[in-house]
Amino acid sequence: MRISFPRLTAAIVFASAFAAPAVAQTTVLKYSNWLPPGQAMRMEVVEPWIAEVEKATQGRVKIDTAPKVVGSVPAQFDVARDGQADLVIFIPGYTPNRFDLLEVLQLPFVSDNPEVFAPLADRFYRKNLASYNEFKGVHPLSVYVVSPGQVFNSKRPLRSLADFKGLKIRSPQTSATQALTLMGAVPISKPVSETYELLSSGVIDGTFMPPESIPAFKLTELVPYATIVPGAIYNTVLVLGINEDKWNSLRAEDREAISRISGEAFARNIGRAYAKGDKAAFELMRKAGKPAEVFPAEALAEMKKVLLPIERDWMEKAKKKGMSDPQKVLEQLRADIAAAQ
């Protein structure tokens, strides 16, 4: 029996269609970015991580950076939870009274070393805080700190607690706001993205900020006085988070691959980038004739006593959120940091 050529061709095509391996569908994640060009976190960690995600998942997961931030910077958690974007970096401290337990990582004089504290923060969160589910609706890919906030202002050198009195200082989160209040300054709670406008217009006299971010946000000429507080008045926690439903929709092997390059690995790269950026920022200020001063030891001892209520207040909030022994949790954090040093 003869089979005509057209029929033979059709049979081959039909058979091939079923024999061909399925082509994996690419999932594109929308990332809401608010970090400026040239900023250390963006250039040295986030953008390389975005490229690594595609590589680690063999192209099955790609990340598309939105041309501008979706929503506002303080609302990034909600943006991810509600699915307006899939991937965000959010700052829990921008929404007070919401992520109370996480504030243990932001208390005064916990650590001033981002290379040690950034990866430890992720590990400590997963071991001691994740079970309280403060991030419901958003899966935390990495929980980390950047450099501790130091004090930059346009009015005067800060060499005693009295020098803080009356200064209007931008505060990024609850413990920093409380610290400024206890020292007699006037806290202004605003996101980092608004700092240039606030300083240039005279609405604020200065800002708490990681040193790296002073040149990154073009503030060098606006804050001639830089003060380093050993041990740090506070740290800022950030979270690389993804919409929980979107995360669960990814293939198991892709979730595993992304997790391997996130978590502590991502946080460790953040710590290194900020430590390097801080040195560069201080050198830039020195060359501009604006060297940083270290807060004097005697005044520092007084500051530590004045700021003790911040710890006590956090413990009370933590108990109300269901943490049975906040004192033990804080002691564990300090012990972990001492061991890591």
Rank of each mutant, 00 (worst) to 15 (best):
G271W: 09
A338Q: 12
E103F: 13
N235K: 02
I261V: 08
V61L: 05
I337K: 01
A179W: 06
S147Q: 06
A11L: 15
R255D: 07
Q84Y: 10
A273L: 11
L198C: 07
I242Y: 01
T220G: 01
V192D: 07
P140S: 12
E197L: 14
Y225W: 11
I242K: 04
R260Q: 15
Q106G: 10
F282Y: 10
M209Q: 14
D163H: 06
T236R: 02
I89T: 01
H139R: 07
I214T: 09
L199T: 02
A340N: 06
Q106F: 05
E256P: 05
F295W: 10
V88K: 10
P140K: 07
E244K: 08
K290W: 14
S142K: 00
A176F: 10
G93R: 09
P108F: 10
V110S: 01
V306R: 14
G184W: 10
P191N: 06
G271L: 07
K321V: 03
F18M: 12
M41V: 09
Y94Q: 09
T177V: 11
K68D: 13
K55F: 04
E293M: 14
V138L: 01
P74L: 01
V306L: 11
A338N: 11
E54N: 05
M303I: 09
G59N: 00
G166H: 08
